[in-house]
Design a protein around this nucleic acid. Structure first.
Length: 112
DNA sequence: CGGCTGACTCTGG
DNA sequence: TCCAGAGCCAGCC
């Protein structure tokens, strides 16, 4: 997947491609995605995902903030759905509804 | 063309 | 260790 060569595409597209690479049962932080794309604009990552639709083909639910928690960006529709999807993938939440990044954070080959 | 905004991240107290 | 404030990049008005 030569997503790193698709610099011609808008950042949105690059971010979507990176998110799609996240395997089931793993999660990634906004910063990780941002670094993968090549920019350090974590806000851009979140903003891009926010523009996505719940029915989109992008596993946005696998993307979380650096605290390992889901960002309370609005009503519980997307947030609750995100948790449901993560639980369905085998990802566990701790007492504070946070994900154990030490075990579930996805490591991209560009991140190593 | 210039300025504002954002599902974040980092540094300081 | 936890809380708060400033910074950041790209898209959109």
């Amino acid at each position: 997947m030569d997503i790193y060569s698709k610099e011609d595409q808008p950042l949105y597209e690059q971010i979507y491609h990176c998110v799609k690479q996240i395997p089931q049962g793993k999660v990634a932080t906004y910063g990780q995605i941002a670094k993968m794309v090549g920019r350090c604009s974590a806000q851009m990552v979140g903003f891009s995902l926010a523009a996505l639709k719940i029915k989109s083909n992008v596993p946005w639910h696998r993307v979380i903030n650096h605290k390992g928690k889901i960002s309370p960006h609005g009503d519980g529709l997307g947030t609750s759905l995100q948790k449901e999807l993560l639980l369905s993938e085998g990802i566990e939440f701790d007492d504070t509804n946070a994900i154990d990044l030490a075990r579930f954070q996805w490591k991209s080959k560009k991140d190593v």
